Simulated assay, not measured.
Amino acid sequence: MSDLLKSVHGTPYWMAPEVINDTGYGRKSDIWSVGCTVFEMATRNPPLAHMDKMAALFYIGAQRGEMPTLPDGFSDNAKDFVKFCLTK
Results as ranks from 00 to 15, higher is better:
86 L>Y: 06
81 F>I: 00
37 T>Y: 11
69 T>W: 13
1 M>T: 12
88 K>P: 14
81 F>K: 03
62 A>I: 06
56 A>M: 06
17 P>R: 12
77 N>A: 10
25 Y>D: 12
66 E>H: 11
26 G>F: 11
13 Y>L: 07
80 D>I: 02
34 V>G: 00
44 R>H: 15
71 P>S: 13
83 K>L: 02
71 P>H: 12
61 G>H: 04
53 K>L: 10
8 V>W: 08
21 N>L: 00
70 L>F: 04
15 M>G: 08
71 P>I: 15
88 K>C: 13
36 C>A: 05
23 T>G: 01
6 K>G: 13
45 N>A: 08
57 L>A: 09
72 D>T: 11
13 Y>K: 02
3 D>F: 07
3 D>M: 01
64 R>M: 14
71 P>N: 07
24 G>E: 13
8 V>I: 09
67 M>K: 01
1 M>W: 14
5 L>S: 04
36 C>W: 01
66 E>R: 08
73 G>Y: 00
62 A>D: 06
37 T>N: 11
7 S>G: 12
68 P>G: 12
16 A>T: 04
70 L>Q: 08
59 Y>L: 05
14 W>S: 09
60 I>A: 14
65 G>P: 00
39 F>M: 12
71 P>C: 09
43 T>Q: 02
33 S>Q: 06
76 D>W: 03
84 F>N: 11
11 T>G: 14
75 S>I: 03
68 P>F: 14
55 A>S: 15
86 L>E: 13
72 D>E: 10
80 D>V: 10
59 Y>N: 09
20 I>Y: 03
54 M>A: 12
27 R>K: 15
19 V>N: 02
75 S>G: 09
12 P>F: 04
63 Q>C: 05
23 T>R: 06
37 T>D: 13
68 P>L: 12
44 R>S: 13
16 A>Q: 04
74 F>P: 11
69 T>L: 14
79 K>H: 01
64 R>W: 00
11 T>D: 13
15 M>V: 10
47 P>V: 10
65 G>W: 05
72 D>V: 15
12 P>D: 08
32 W>M: 02
18 E>F: 03
42 A>K: 08
64 R>A: 14
2 S>E: 00
70 L>E: 06
19 V>C: 01
57 L>V: 07
82 V>M: 02
34 V>H: 07
10 G>Q: 04
36 C>P: 07
62 A>F: 05
7 S>K: 15
86 L>Q: 02
29 S>F: 05
30 D>V: 06
63 Q>Y: 05
14 W>M: 11
73 G>K: 01
9 H>G: 08
46 P>S: 07
38 V>N: 01
76 D>Q: 10
77 N>E: 04
4 L>W: 08
